[in-house]
């Protein structure tokens, strides 16, 4: 079976999606990525989708799942390289990819991951690190219960 290669780049894992995703490939990627996060202690996952001609709700859901699972494993996910036509189509489709961080290109995405890793090192156990308070509504909801 085909698998999508996962490269280690400093504290981050880099995944370049170049092929048309189908169900098995998507779930294999999710499993491989989570295993690699745990094995390497990576602080971030960079997903390059610049080769993707479309992102439909299936791929959107896969990206959102990877972001959620990675977050539980203490790694930030940043999706980079989205084509302009894909962004326009996603908005019209109604898919806002809440909870998925994006950056224009791999360089900016790596900077985001590095920044998040640094601020989580500075933050003490008592208060949430800066990148956590900036997360989407569901996390803030959890904070509110404290």
């Amino acid at each position: 079976m085909d698998r999508i290669p996962i490269l280690k780049l400093g504290e981050a894992l880099l995944v370049t999606i170049q092929v048309d995703m189908h169900d098995r490939l998507a779930s294999a990627l999710e499993e491989d990525l989570t295993a690699r996060i745990v094995a390497t202690g990576a602080r971030g996952v960079l997903i390059d989708i610049s080769a993707l001609e479309i992102v439909d709700s299936f791929i959107g859901r896969m990206l959102a799942n990877i972001a959620s699972v990675s977050r539980l494993l203490d790694a930030d996910t940043v999706v980079v390289g989205m084509r302009p036509a894909v962004a326009i189509t996603l908005v019209e489709l109604g898919l806002s990819l809440k909870g998925v961080k994006t950056a224009l290109n791999a360089e900016r995405g790596m900077a985001m991951i590095r920044q998040a890793a640094v601020s989580s090192l500075i933050g003490t156990g008592d208060e949430p690190a800066a990148h956590e308070t900036a997360e989407s509504g569901d996390l803030r909801g959890i904070d509110g219960d404290f």
Partner: peptide, 15 residues
């Protein structure tokens, strides 16, 4: 952009 829109719509419906 129009190519992307119709391909994405078709992908949703095919699924």
């Amino acid at each position: 952009v129009d190519q992307t829109k119709i391909i994405t719509a078709a992908s949703e419906l095919a699924r």
